[in-house]
């Protein structure tokens, strides 16, 4: 499949936009206005951007603690997200959730929560409801490879397999859970794709840093889920560039080998795609500058607005405890 130039440009723009959002958050974080934990996704742009391009608005997405890209790529409102990080009333969760609880129902970002693995069965439940209600909408459930160590992950794919649910399980394997490499967490020969297959779920592993691969393959997979009504698991290898939680790079702590870091920085999804498009003369420096300007404007607006928006009034503490 050859990807149209228009799509290539959009994918590039999306990735650049994602990266710029996180970079801006990181730059502004030390001003101490965004007072909530942030799990930035720098380095993992290709996954959310590539998959979301194949999703329709009515498809639903679930995420975990590292959710900014899943939210934005699905069309989540940027202003509401930044305002949520600032703890403002105009935030997507009224300030009650912070970065770890993004939500945008209009865009189909159904829920993001920071308890590892928790949204996996909830996403399965929504897909189950879709089946009961004869809806063909897809449910995409994003999670880190850490989640696949929780029992609930296996229980969930088991159930999805029994009931033939329209689910794309997306495992973003960035090799780390906080500071822990895979060594103490998963046996060397463990293979998520084989595990899934032996549980009756078709599965694929892809290079999660190549946007074209992610886009093309997830397109096929998603079409297949929608026609066969069978779930699929996609494992994508990737790497986070910044610290687990917070705005900085903490590689001085030496929990990741320099060789490994260099290897993955060379595989930066954004830089490589940019190089490719430049080489193919699909973009030039002007295009890049134009995009950057556009994104910067959008970000300036979002941050200015979040800054000047109101904090929720004290009585909001007591609202929406019960429906």
């Amino acid at each position: 499949m050859k990807v149209k130039k228009k799509i290539l440009l959009e994918l590039y723009f999306d990735m650049l936009r994602m990266r710029s959002v996180e970079t801006r958050i990181a730059q502004e974080y030390s001003k101490q206005e965004m007072r909530c934990p942030v799990h930035l996704s720098v380095g993992q742009e290709a996954i959310a951007c590539g998959i979301s391009k194949n999703l329709q608005k009515k498809d639903k997405v679930f995420s975990a603690h590292r959710s900014h890209y899943h939210y934005l790529a699905k069309g989540g409102n940027l202003n509401s997200m930044i305002a949520e990080l600032f703890g403002k009333e105009s935030g997507c969760a009224g300030g009650k959730g912070g970065s770890m609880h993004l939500i945008d129902l209009k865009a189909g970002l159904f829920a993001a929560v920071p308890i590892v693995g928790s949204t996996i069965p909830i996403g399965v439940g929504l897909a189950w409801a879709n089946k009961i209600n004869n809806k063909k909408d897809l449910v995409v459930i994003y999670f880190g490879e850490g989640s696949t160590e929780e029992g609930v992950f296996y229980e969930s794919i088991n159930f999805a397999g029994i009931h033939d649910l329209n689910i794309l399980f997306v495992c973003e394997n960035n090799l780390y859970s906080v500071y822990s490499g895979l060594g103490n967490r998963q046996a060397k020969k463990r293979n998520l794709v084989s595990i899934s297959k032996s549980m009756g779920i078709s599965a694929t592993k892809l290079n999660g840093n190549n946007i074209e691969t992610v886009f093309i393959e997830s397109n096929k997979i998603i079409n297949n889920i929608k026609t066969t009504n069978k779930p699929h698991l996609l494992e994508l290898s990737t790497y986070r560039h910044l610290e687990h939680c917070g705005p900085f790079n903490d590689d001085k702590l030496n929990y990741r080998e320099q060789k490994e870091i260099n290897y993955w920085l060379k595989k930066c999804p954004l830089k490589n795609f940019e190089k490719l498009l430049l080489n193919k003369k699909i973009i030039n420096d002007q295009t890049i500058n134009k995009y950057i300007k556009k994104i910067d404007n959008e970000l300036n607006q979002a941050f200015n607005k979040a800054r000047s928006d109101k904090f929720p009034n004290k009585n909001k503490l007591f609202t929406n405890v019960y429906a």
């Binding site: 300030g95 009650k96 770890m100 929720p312 004290k314 503490l317």
Partner: peptide
């Protein structure tokens, strides 16, 4: 603690 979940924003959580 006030009889609600504890929200993220400090403008509310400080009252919790």
């Amino acid at each position: 603690i006030k009889d609600t979940p504890i929200p993220s924003t400090r403008s509310l959580a400080n009252h919790s």
